[in-house]
Measured scan of single mutants.
Amino acid sequence: MTFKAIINGKTLKGETTTEAVDAATAEKVFKQYFNDNGLDGEWTYDDATKTFTVTE
């Protein structure tokens, strides 16, 4: 399945996608990506659209 992340950061904005077997796996991938890029913020997840949003 394809999962999307919308990034609303102070220094980084945009979208990225990942292929994962479930939402928990996708969340781990996205959180690692955000940690690697120095992002920290509020997380939400919309199961209907398979979209994570992080707002810094």
Rank of each mutant, 00 (worst) to 15 (best):
M1H: 13
T2P: 04
T2Y: 08
T2R: 12
T2W: 14
T2N: 08
T2H: 10
F3M: 05
F3Q: 04
K4C: 12
K4F: 09
K4Y: 13
K4H: 13
K4R: 12
K4Q: 06
A5P: 03
A5V: 14
A5N: 03
I7Q: 01
I7F: 15
I7K: 00
I7P: 00
I7L: 10
I7T: 04
N8T: 08
N8Y: 12
N8M: 14
N8F: 13
N8P: 03
N8I: 14
N8L: 14
G9T: 15
G9Q: 09
G9L: 15
K10G: 09
K10A: 11
K10S: 11
K10M: 10
T11F: 13
T11H: 11
T11A: 09
T11E: 10
T11Y: 13
T11G: 11
T11D: 09
T11C: 15
L12H: 12
L12E: 11
L12G: 09
K13S: 11
K13G: 07
G14R: 10
G14Q: 09
T16I: 15
T17Y: 14
T17P: 01
T17D: 04
T17H: 08
T18Y: 08
T18N: 02
T18A: 06
T18W: 12
T18P: 00
E19M: 12
E19A: 06
E19Y: 14
E19K: 13
A20P: 01
A20E: 03
A20D: 00
A20Q: 06
V21R: 12
V21A: 08
D22A: 01
D22P: 00
D22V: 01
A23G: 03
A23M: 09
A23C: 11
A23K: 11
A23S: 07
A24C: 12
A24G: 06
A24V: 11
A24N: 07
T25R: 05
T25K: 04
T25V: 06
T25C: 07
A26F: 01
A26P: 00
A26Y: 01
E27K: 11
E27D: 02
E27A: 09
E27C: 14
K28F: 08
K28S: 09
K28L: 12
K28T: 07
K28I: 10
V29G: 03
V29F: 14
V29N: 07
V29P: 00
V29A: 08
V29E: 05
V29Q: 13
V29R: 07
F30I: 02
F30G: 01
F30D: 00
K31V: 07
Q32E: 10
Q32L: 07
Q32A: 11
Y33P: 00
Y33L: 08
Y33T: 04
Y33M: 13
Y33E: 03
F34M: 12
F34W: 09
F34D: 00
N35E: 13
N35D: 10
N35A: 14
N35C: 13
D36M: 12
D36C: 12
D36I: 09
N37V: 14
N37I: 15
G38V: 06
G38R: 06
G38L: 08
G38Y: 06
G38H: 09
L39S: 04
L39N: 03
L39C: 10
L39Y: 12
D40C: 13
D40N: 12
D40Q: 13
D40K: 13
D40F: 14
G41D: 04
G41P: 05
E42G: 07
W43G: 01
W43R: 00
W43P: 01
W43K: 00
W43N: 00
W43A: 02
W43M: 07
W43Q: 01
T44L: 08
T44V: 10
T44D: 08
Y45P: 01
Y45F: 05
Y45Q: 00
Y45T: 01
Y45K: 01
Y45E: 00
D46I: 02
D46V: 03
D46N: 09
D46S: 04
D46P: 01
D47S: 09
A48Q: 10
A48V: 11
A48F: 10
T49R: 05
T49C: 03
T49A: 05
T49E: 04
T49S: 10
K50R: 14
K50G: 04
K50C: 06
K50I: 01
K50W: 05
K50D: 01
K50Y: 07
K50T: 02
K50Q: 09
T51I: 05
T51Q: 03
F52T: 01
F52G: 01
F52R: 00
F52W: 06
F52S: 01
T53P: 00
T53S: 06
T53W: 12
T53C: 08
V54K: 02
V54W: 15
V54A: 03
T55Y: 10
T55Q: 08
T55E: 07
T55G: 04
T55N: 08
T55F: 08
E56P: 12
E56F: 13
E56I: 15
